[in-house]
Design a protein around this nucleic acid. Structure first.
Lengths: 177, 177
DNA sequence: GATAAAATTAAGGTAAAAGTAAGGATAGCG
DNA sequence: CGCTATCCTTACTTTTACCTTAATTTTATC
């Protein structure tokens, strides 16, 4: 029903040259048409009326299959502080050309702060996140880890601009400026 | 509506371990069910009644996509570390003129790391990939295999430059430099 | 200026991983 | 059916990187 020919011959010809995925969106849901379309190598066949969301999902599924790499986005799992980038999936801190790595505790603490960036996080709740078991009596240890973190992410660890202390409450990660 | 649970949680769990294609054949064609199924990573969703021929066609299309000929199989299925090349399709390690081979467990472990190159992979998830059955209690064994792998792919196995340990978390394959 | 909170430092302890060797399983072959 | 070689697992000791402790100094707030 296209103005200059029918869709089926279009696909047939197209398929001879290309493997690019094809999804047919048709007004006819006659069984024969559907079978023909799929038989010619279309990846999917949807008939009107259809749910917009279903169309999106079907497209996504086809693309995932064709171009692979259905890896959960790693980009999102990172933290940008000024010109240094912390990548949690690799556990690395990139600043310019140099790379430092995070230890397990540093990782857990920074992750927790990162998840609540801009907000105060009490020492208690940081400990809770970093020490599964009885998270008390680690306040002092936490301080030492904070210091180490600052040495890794701050220009001047003694005058931090990102990992800030909130006296009497805990710490917080400065919101991006 | 399965005797021992619902199909959706089955798929959800299945998708965490496997990329094998899934086609849902359901009695319900409620829109919500269809969307949920596709959203969880099913490749297609057919409702009864359906034409047997359509089922066949849809299966064929999926299979073509997944296992089809448009795979640049070799490129994707190999790993280059410095000047040594690991070819997963043959299970061989080429370095210069010498060739070593990977054992089954070494293969599985290295594959898993290779698929997540640059990212930390927990010991648990490596075990999960290498030992289908109850993947607990293999941490020690895993270490021994890691050692063997290092002897095969590292210049100085005791000071690895590719297969790195992330203390307290797992291992990772260094990104190419 | 007093006081409590946090920073700083260095040393030591400790659990995680490395390393090694020997025993068991398994598959291939005669 | 047994033999052999290869691979996997277990068990144990050693090493090391990270974490913790503890004691002193600095800083912020009242």
């Amino acid at each position: 029903m296209l103005p200059d020919g029918d869709g089926f011959s279009l696909i047939r010809e197209f398929r001879q040259h290309s493997d690019v995925p094809v999804l047919i969106l048709s007004a006819c849901d006659a069984d024969d048409d559907r079978l023909l379309g799929l038989g010619l190598g279309a990846d999917d066949y949807l008939t009107k009326p259809f749910l917009p969301r279903e169309l999106i999902l079907r497209i996504n599924n086809i693309l995932k299959r064709v171009y692979g790499s259905n890896q959960p986005a790693l980009e999102r799992d990172s933290l940008l502080l000024g010109d240094i980038l912390i990548d949690f999936s690799s556990g690395l801190i990139h600043s310019g050309k140099t790379e430092k790595s995070l230890t397990a505790k540093e990782f857990a603490i920074l992750k927790k702060l990162s998840e609540n960036r801009g907000n105060i996080v009490t020492a208690d709740s940081i400990c809770q996140a970093a020490w599964e078991d009885g998270y008390y009596g680690y306040e002092n240890t936490l301080m030492v880890h904070i210091r180490r973190l600052r040495e890794k992410i701050e220009k001047d660890p003694s005058h931090p601009q990102y990992l800030l202390t909130v006296r009497g409450m805990g710490y917080k990660l400065a919101k991006d400026s």
